[in-house]
Amino acid sequence: MIHIAALIAASLALTDGTRAQALVSYNIVGDGIPESLTGAPGDAARGRALVLDRSTTCILCHSGPFPETRFQGDLAPDLTGAGNRWSTSQLRLRLVDASRFNRETIMPSYYRNDGLVRVGRNLAGKPILSPSQIEDIVAYLATLRD
């Protein structure tokens, strides 16, 4: 089964005059997104830095094999072995829109800009992460093997 995500948001004028960014298109195949959002593989080293950057929120909720990071969250599963549990295709869709798997999840959809309420004025219409950031994180998580 193949879904084509609807990505046209540019015509939606927002209250402060900014416009929603158009997201790059992607194809969902089964329970994943097999193709890179950027058309190129991500950089695992940059991905690791992003996962550990408190502002991107991974480490706020997740713990993982990061001995140098003292404060890790326990709101979400440990990322140890994530690369064994999921293929890069599955990891990519989980980052892009985890709510697709569980409506009740507290994991934000990192590459989505619709269906959100009261988004901060400066962030409206923007996804949390860029396609290249998603790819970097996917590349890093894929290396997490037990």
Partner: peptide, 8 residues
Amino acid sequence: MPSTRRQF
């Protein structure tokens, strides 16, 4: 404010 600068 770019959100990625929040750490700093």
